[in-house]
Amino acid sequence: MRNTSLWNRRTRLTLLIVLAATYLLAVFFWGLFIDPSEYGVHYENKLLAPSGQHLFGTDAMGRDMFKRCIKGLSNSLVIGLLASLVSSVVALIMGIASAVFGGFVDRFVNLCVDLCMGLPHLVLLILISCMAGRGTVGVTVAVALTHWPSLTRIVRQEVLQLRNTQYVLASRKMGKSYLTIALTHMVPHVLPAYLIGLILLFPHAIMHEASVTFLGFGLPKEMPAIGVILAESMNHITTGKWWMALFPGLMLLLAVVLFDLIGETLKKLWNPNSGNE
């Protein structure tokens, strides 16, 4: 009785994750392999309101907004993935090093975190993106280099708790090296929290990419991207072309919510007690 109901709960949560992931993957691959002519310029169709033919309407150059959004979101996902991976590896190394070595290393890592958080995130993003020459490279570097502090703190905390457990103390007494301890005891225990943290980085990365792009320091204007589309929409919403802003934003919102959902659900699956409200 108990097992079946537990299984039910697990299946339901798993199903939720699978559905969310399927949607995101579908958008990702559709955008990746979409034929650029699908969102090509058709001046005869410019500024059409949403219809069966053009789900999200068309823009000032007659491009299909739905297809542009798909491509744009897909681009965002690629950047988000790259940036999250880089940030999370940085966080993993810094977090573990800081907790295992302590002392000077710990202080140094904390200083780096403080430095990174010393400027408003958006200002730091703009500065790094400008340094890296703006464009796709600029925004990717900026997003990748600024999302590690929070995850570093999580990893550090997890490892600190582990460090004083009996078996870690025992293996140190037995003369195991720091590296061995880190690899055999720390990594496996920190991994779940780390992976969930990685997934939860995603929505932040995507949102910040869109923001930086919106302000003009990110993806170039000719590239389909939610930030670019929304920046363009600014010129048209005053004349009542609301669909140009509404749908692209909703697409972005949905992607962010789904990533959040996947991360939080995984957290619940991993630690069932946390979700027992």
Binding site: P203, L230, I237, L252
Partner: peptide, 9 residues
């Protein structure tokens, strides 16, 4: 989950 600038829009 909504970007601030989109809310503004």
């Amino acid at each position: 989950s909504a970007p601030t600038f989109w809310l503004g829009l």
